[in-house]
């Protein structure tokens, strides 16, 4: 898939989405609802008003951060299924830092950095296991998801729990330590333009730097890269650490900009949806931005669809899953084709 020209890949992504949307319409009809009503409420919930656009963008933020983290790993030829755990680790690191420091903008920035660092650590562990002992990064990253989840759970029942000890959640982050809103009194915060900046930086890294060149070569063909003097291990480490850092920054941004508290089930599965985001975006940062927006809008619209049209929002989860299956199938079929060519 990555070898195909950009227009072809965009068309492929568009076809996938169209096929899945048509399938969804059939499913909605089969359940006795009107597809027209379903889509109009979905669209209305996503883009119908300023308020709904804001919600769509708020949902886009964490998907973009994690989607970029997954993208970088995939470009290096490693599977990062651990963006969810890196997201949690980032939120935990940010919460612990923001609550420990005296309130103020310094705390916000330090907490954001701490979140990115925690995510990077969460990416480093499976990378080190892979490079040192050959442990599959698929296993390493997935398993650490659960570790991070339980770590957050322990923290909000223990050391980070609010002082009233009423709910399993942290104290609220002081307003001055939060990521400031873009507009006075608005809900959109600085974390979202920061994510766009990260996408731009990732594009520059992959396209214009020597290290990005080596990372792409190692991702396409680690054997040929190694023989030519490019150790793929370096790229794997870099991609999982920096990718984990991006996902971790996403967790921190969500905590400091949206929820302002840490609690169990903090993520709505962003780190998993991130895989679909990265693949739908064809692993090109600019297209990943659009893919994140697409999935963010779906998330936002599905709630409205359930409220207004009475159609279960689970259908949207189904849609996401179906897109992912299509994308992975397309990807592996092109891998198979490449393998055949190689024979």
């Amino acid at each position: 898939m990555r070898g195909a020209p950009l227009s072809g890949r965009l068309r492929a992504a568009f076809v996938d989405v169209a096929v899945v949307v048509a399938g969804l319409a059939l499913l909605v009809a089969a359940c006795g609802h009107s597809p027209r009503e379903a889509f109009s409420s979905l669209l209305g919930g996503a883009f119908g008003s300023i308020g709904s656009i804001v919600i769509s963008l708020l949902k886009t933020g964490p998907l973009l951060w994690t989607g970029l983290g997954v993208t970088l790993a995939f470009r290096a030829g490693v599977w990062n299924i651990g963006a969810e755990g890196q997201f949690y680790a980032g939120a935990l690191g940010a919460a612990a830092t923001a609550l420990a420091l005296p309130p103020g903008p310094f705390a916000a920035l330090t907490a954001l950095a701490a979140g990115a660092l925690a995510g990077a650590l969460w990416g480093f562990l499976p990378a080190a296991l892979k490079v040192r002992w050959g442990v599959s990064e698929v296993l390493g990253t997935i398993m650490l998801n659960f570790v991070a989840l339980e770590l957050v759970s322990w923290a909000v029942h223990g050391p980070l729990q609010e002082s009233s000890r009423f709910y399993p959640q942290s104290e609220r982050i002081a307003e001055s330590s939060q990521l400031a809103p873009l507009l006075e009194g608005g809900r959109l915060h600085w974390g979202i333009p920061l994510a766009l900046l990260a996408a731009a930086a990732l594009h520059v890294f992959l396209t214009y730097t020597s290290a990005g060149f080596r990372l792409r070569a190692a991702g396409f063909n680690p054997r040929a890269a190694r023989l030519a003097g490019i150790a793929p291990e370096t790229s794997w480490l870099l991609a999982l650490c920096v990718g984990g850092g991006l996902a971790g920054a996403g967790g921190a941004s969500e905590l400091l900009g949206v929820t302002h508290r840490l609690y169990e089930r903090f993520s709505a599965g962003y780190g998993y949806t991130a895989i679909a985001v990265a693949l739908l975006g064809g692993l090109e940062p600019a297209a990943v931005v659009l893919a994140a927006l697409f999935f963010g809008a779906l998330e936002a619209g599905s709630g409205t669809m359930q409220r207004v049209a009475g159609i279960p929002s689970v259908l949207v989860t189904l849609l996401q899953g179906a897109i992912l299956v299509l994308l992975v199938a397309r990807r592996s079929s092109s891998d198979v084709a490449a393998a055949r060519r190689a024979l």
């Binding site: 990555r2 792409r216 070569a217 396409f220 063909n221 040929a224 023989l227 060519r341 190689a342």
Partner: peptide
Amino acid sequence: TQSGVVLEMSVADNLAL
């Protein structure tokens, strides 16, 4: 094709490996 060249990359990129 397995160890020599990176099929997905351009001629220029392969020559610069």
